[in-house]
Design a protein around this nucleic acid. Structure first.
Length: 181
DNA sequence: CAATCGATGATCT
DNA sequence: GATCATCGATTGG
């Protein structure tokens, strides 16, 4: 193989904003499909009014408060799944929403699942369809240990990280916690 | 192009 | 009962 390196607990167990920026350019692999992460958003806890975790722990968001490096997948708008990876030390809420990836492997499979040839994974719900990620099958998965889904560093260098307000929220627009390149 | 809006059901209050 | 970390079809300029 090459110098590729799977991301472990030390990577995720840090401030959500740092983890979000450093996730840009990393490869996410799910079975035979892979893609490069090119857009993410950071979410925190009680200091972040846009976060699911803002008002404390619930049945839906509890994973955000637990160990870093686990998938938090939620279902919204009656039809969409979105995928996060938990961050911060156990007890402190945090997660990174994966908003877009650039497909690399398994493109034909992604096209089949999406029933389209373009825009396969340039949105948080689109990439869950492309990678076949659902709340039922993936919520709570340990992405540091799981055999079928993992994130690794192939030493790809990102130069121009841009940031903006997060998408689709009403509060916390002052926080520029969406990162992309 | 950009702006608007309906779909559709789990989750929270 | 209201909201929603979205998408894609449609409308209008």
């Amino acid at each position: 193989m090459n110098k590729s390196k799977r991301l472990k607990k030390k990577f995720f167990e840090r401030d959500s904003i740092i983890v979000a920026k450093e996730l840009l350019g990393k490869i996410i692999q799910v079975n035979n499909c892979s893609g490069r992460i090119n857009e993410v958003e950071a979410y925190k806890g009680s200091c972040d009014e846009a976060s699911h975790a803002y008002k404390g722990k619930t049945k839906r968001n509890y994973l955000m408060f637990e160990d870093p490096g686990f998938l938090y997948v939620y279902f919204t708008y009656g039809m969409h799944h979105c995928m996060n990876i938990t961050t911060e030390k156990n007890g402190k809420a945090g997660a990174i929403l994966i908003r877009s990836i650039i497909p690399i492997e398994g493109i034909n499979e992604m096209k089949k699942r999406r029933k389209k040839d373009k825009n396969l994974s340039d949105g948080p719900a689109k990439l869950c369809v492309a990678l076949n990620i659902t709340k039922e099958n993936h919520n709570g998965i340990n992405i540091m240990e799981n055999k079928e889904i993992f994130i690794y560093d192939d030493k790809y260098k990102i130069t121009n990280i841009k940031s903006s307000s997060r998408i689709g929220i009403k509060n916390g627009l002052d926080k520029k916690w969406r990162f992309y390149y």
